[in-house]
Amino acid sequence: MSNYSVTRAWIDTKMADSFDVPIIYPSWFPNFNALQELYPQLRTVQANDFKEYLSVIHERLARGSVVTAIDRYHLDYIKPQRHMGAHYIIIHDAFDTLFMYFDPYDRGEHVVSAEELEAWTSPSHPSVQYMGYSVTFIDPSVDSKRPPLTLETILDQRIANIRTTIRNIGGFKVTAPLSSRAYRFFLKLALGGMSNSDFNKKNGRLENKEFFIHKRMLISAALETAIIGYYQALLRAFEWIYIKDVEITRRRWIVFMNLYIIGLRIELSRYQALKAIVHGARIESRGRNFLEAMR
């Protein structure tokens, strides 16, 4: 996929339960062509202006609910407010210029006016994650034989990605020695990536932590806090080394990589534990279904 990967995206499973596809919060513009390769049933209609956008919604409502993308920054029941790009709501009824919609975030029913909806779908300033006037819906007439993308499959992909990252980072440790200027340059690149990564910004892991707190999953929230804290401590320590113009020797570069790998191994263990839980729950569910069928 060109702008994001499934395993690194925020996947709202409540949204997925609503209309049978995972909704992906991309780090940049969503690529619907790539999504349609995974889910041919997913259809997106792009309108030229807000008036045309409303007419598309009314047309779709005559046949069922409409799933549409908005900027979640405008939803005052999501705290703290921040631009997160595309957020999906399910519009299921219309009364003149008022629309009833369901939001899987709080599993609540809400009302939005046409005027508000126009603001929710207009470009932000500066325009960063603007989707345009798009209506997303499932077309049941399109039959797909592809197996669904399950949480267990996503965890498998994430585990494989982390293992690959650990292996690639480990490969740097066996390369021929380089100059301290080269190691300093590599450290600068690494620190720049870390400072803009999801554990250090108001998305990704920080978003996950707030989600767990919201759902009262305190152990998961504590684990997220610990992982975030570890990476941020590593970032600050080596930023201090870099800013103080300490020589970046091969030994210091390897220490940095080893410490980063420790964080990755912690993440790997957590994803493996989650997979075991999901796999166990699936087997237990199948067992219950089998016993009920035998009655």
Rank of each mutant, 00 (worst) to 15 (best):
N203Y: 12
S113K: 06
D76E: 14
Y53I: 05
F137D: 05
I283F: 09
E116G: 00
T175R: 15
L54R: 05
N168G: 07
N33D: 14
E118K: 14
T165Y: 06
L75A: 02
W253N: 02
I70Q: 02
L149V: 11
G170V: 00
A9Q: 06
R250M: 08
E239V: 06
P104L: 08
D17C: 08
A94R: 02
H87M: 02
H83K: 11
L149E: 04
Y231T: 07
G204T: 03
S18M: 10
G193A: 07
V45T: 14
E292N: 15
E115A: 11
R181Q: 10
Q272I: 09
V278A: 08
R205Y: 15
Q157G: 12
P80F: 08
N33Y: 14
I248M: 14
V135E: 04
L206Q: 15
Q129E: 10
M257S: 09
L291I: 15
G171F: 07
L149I: 10
N3W: 10
R43E: 13
K275R: 13
F238E: 01
E115C: 08
K145D: 15
M84P: 03
Y88E: 11
F95W: 09
Q36H: 06
F199I: 11
S197R: 00
Y101L: 02
A47R: 01
I23T: 05
V21K: 02
P177S: 04
G171M: 04
S27K: 13
A94S: 14
I261L: 08
D49V: 05
V255H: 13
F172L: 15
Y230M: 06
Y271M: 04
Y242P: 01
P177V: 04
L61V: 01
K209W: 01
F256G: 01
Y4N: 12
H83C: 05
R252D: 01
A222L: 14
S197E: 11
S124I: 04
L223N: 06
Y88H: 04
R82T: 15
D17P: 01
W10F: 12
K201H: 09
Y230N: 03
R270D: 07
L259I: 05
D17M: 11
Y4W: 13
M194G: 01
S27H: 13
F172P: 04
V246E: 12
R288W: 14
Q129A: 12
Q41P: 03
Y73K: 03
R60E: 12
I78E: 08
I154F: 06
R282I: 09
Y88W: 13
G204F: 00
S122V: 02
